[in-house]
Amino acid sequence: MNWITNQVLPKIRAFRQRKDTPDNLWTKCPGCGQMIFHGEMAAALWVCPQCDHHLRIGAKERLGLLFGEAGHSRIAVPAVPTDPIRFRDSMRYAERLRQAWQRTNGEDALVVAEGDLDGRRIVAAVQDFGFLGGSMGLAVGEGFVTAAKRAVQGRMPLIVFSASGGARMQEGMLSLMQMPRTVVAVQRLREAGLPFIVVLTDPTTGGVTASFAMLGDIALAEPGALIGFAGPRVIQQTIRQTLPEGFQRAEYLLEHGMLDMVVHRRDLRATLSRLVGLLLPAGPRVEQPEMAAGPQHP
């Protein structure tokens, strides 16, 4: 054992590090193909300095951008059963999950945090497209419900950053049922008089768009983000026509009335802070009791 731990393992580690480091030094912009120095990309908030392409970022980076130096604390998402229908395609779902967890320290595709946004406490829920395509299964549903609960308990606004390919097929109907489940959580926020702001990031499609992500009191999106219900490939296969230029991009949705605004990543934090401040000038409001008679929803 000693020989292995003292001699062999360090060599393996060194070899892996050698291989990893050069990859991380440069990032290739998916928009223009330019190789950009990693440090430069991070300083530019992962927006390409050449073409303004907004790169996909992980939950950690996103929380860092939102809360900055004020910091934030993670809110633990209670554990849910994994692999509830014992799914297997080319690989067992349990194995697929195990591999994905190694990169995230056991976190699923949605993380929850609480922190300070210009002196106001807020709850943020962030989806990570890197984790199984940000797909929504039991754990993402649980994460969203946890975030909404915390917001209601602490009378805080909830800001969600969506990024998802849709429902997690490997959990079958239990994942589809997270659509109504998360919608109930949105309703709880609404009835508590708390703002629910959604920032749609690239890409947001399927069951996530068709549930909580499109129910924001205010809907923002990052430039160029793909947002839709059906994915472009499915649509193309169904109708066998070329899709229009810019189809399902944030700007297209804005033009068609589906968003309030498209906001550059560098302006996002200030915009969110302003919106929260305008919606809650003197703290959260409680829903007015409904009138006994007459139309409830004119």
Binding site: V186, F212, M214, L215, V234, I235, I239, Q248, H256
Partner: peptide
Amino acid sequence: GAYPGIDAEEHGQAEAIARGIDCCLD
């Protein structure tokens, strides 16, 4: 399933479904 077409997306298929669920639960 819901219709996957250009017009459907243009008119907000995802939003319409989300509001449908929202209404059911309200």
